[in-house]
């Protein structure tokens, strides 16, 4: 009977290690407010969403003087456990990165009513009210998408542009609808071809599928394709490179994925979202419920910098900036929900 005792011993050793360590921990306490962050499974290092969240926390640490700790769960079932662990510590505000945290945050927030939770892209269920200590951090992706749609509509030569979505869900529909509206606003004749990679989470990690959809759209005449599909989009970039058309990145600046072929990127400023949330939490003004960040609070935007300034004409930018002002002022309403679906 081997290793019958290994488990036991592991415990024993842990005890010993713990006893040595306890005393030290007290000394390490400091006055700073503490915040927790749980990344998505395998999310850290995605050069997008999760890394952006990390940047937001770093900025809050430097500028607002908070402390934070983060956890990278190893599997789906660890998400709840990780939230719970941070909630039972000194952390007063805990972030979950991604809509997959919705259920977990609902459960854990009920057990820790004196802690605040914030979930990026929280999936709002109209049937269930949001708990008072849960902040549903939403972005008006449709507004950013509208602007990149306008850029596409003004830049296309074939008058056909494409959209590749990941999972066919309302969250991604916001990108599609805003994009299409932006295209039509500046170029009513332009056709928008829409494709989705699937209906499961797998649809966000299937570059081969992304490439296939992009090829079919290019065959139908598309010369600019916007994707909102996670790593599936890498296939879209590959197709753009092979067929020499332009692609539009999503979430963060994706120029480096295919330099020269990325027209612009619709950026979702998760870092800004986190930073703003932390700031209002420190100020004591953070309330539960939906918080939406759009162009107005700089939650979304598009990329126009040294890399792509040769790809977009100054007139286009001028036009886009005026559209942006109109959206902020409320003059233009960007659609975000699909009708009769």
């Amino acid at each position: 009977m081997p290793s019958k005792y290994t488990g036991l011993l592991f415990f024993a050793a842990l005890c010993a290690a713990g006893l040595c360590g306890c005393a030290r921990k007290q000394a390490a306490e400091s006055g700073a407010k503490k915040i927790g962050l749980v990344f998505d499974v395998g999310g850290r290092g995605d050069k997008s969403f999760n890394d952006s969240a990390y940047n937001g926390m770093e900025r809050a640490r430097k500028e607002l003087g908070i402390e934070y700790s983060y956890i990278e769960p190893g599997e789906g079932a660890d998400k709840e456990s990780a939230l719970r662990q941070l909630a039972s510590g000194r952390e007063g505000l805990i972030f979950g990165t991604g809509f997959l945290f919705t259920d977990d945050i609902n459960i854990v927030s009920a057990d820790f009513p004196d802690k605040m939770f914030a979930c990026v892209d929280y999936a709002v269920n109209p049937a269930k009210p949001i708990a008072p200590n849960v902040v549903a951090l939403k972005f008006r992706e449709q507004e950013g998408s509208f602007l990149v749609g306008a850029i596409a509509g003004l830049t296309t030569k074939t008058n056909v542009v494409g959209f590749v979505g990941g999972m066919d869900i309302p969250l991604i529909h916001k990108f599609e609808l805003g994009y299409a509206a932006g295209v039509k606003a500046v170029n009513p004749q332009c056709k928008v071809i829409v494709g989705y990679a699937g209906v499961t989470g797998e649809a966000f990690k299937n570059p081969a599928k992304g490439k296939a959809i992009a090829f079919s759209q290019i065959d139908q005449g598309a010369d600019i394709i916007f994707h909102a599909s996670g790593s599936t989009g890498l296939g879209v970039f590959e197709a753009a490179r092979e067929r020499n058309i332009k692609a539009i990145g999503v979430d963060s600046d994706q120029y480096s994925e295919a330099p020269g072929y990325i027209l612009t990127s619709m950026i979702k400023k998760v870092d800004v979202g986190l930073y703003e949330t932390v700031k209002s939490w420190l100020a004591g003004t953070l309330k539960g419920g939906v918080t939406e960040l759009g162009l107005a609070r700089d939650g979304v935007g598009y990329v126009y910098d040294e890399n792509n300034k040769d790809l977009i004409s100054p007139e286009t930018i001028k036009k886009v900036e005026s559209l942006k002002r109109k959206i902020i002022s409320g003059e233009i309403k960007v659609p975000s929900v699909k009708e009769n679906r």
């Binding site: 842990l14 290690a17 713990g18 040595c20 360590g21 306890c22 030290r24 921990k25 719970r84 039972s88």
Partner: peptide, 19 residues
């Protein structure tokens, strides 16, 4: 990283804690 802090957290989080 201070290993003592890590091990003490490990001990507290895994064994001293009903959760």
């Amino acid at each position: 990283v201070n290993p003592l802090a890590v091990y003490s957290a490990l001990f507290e989080g895994v064994l001293l804690n009903p959760y």
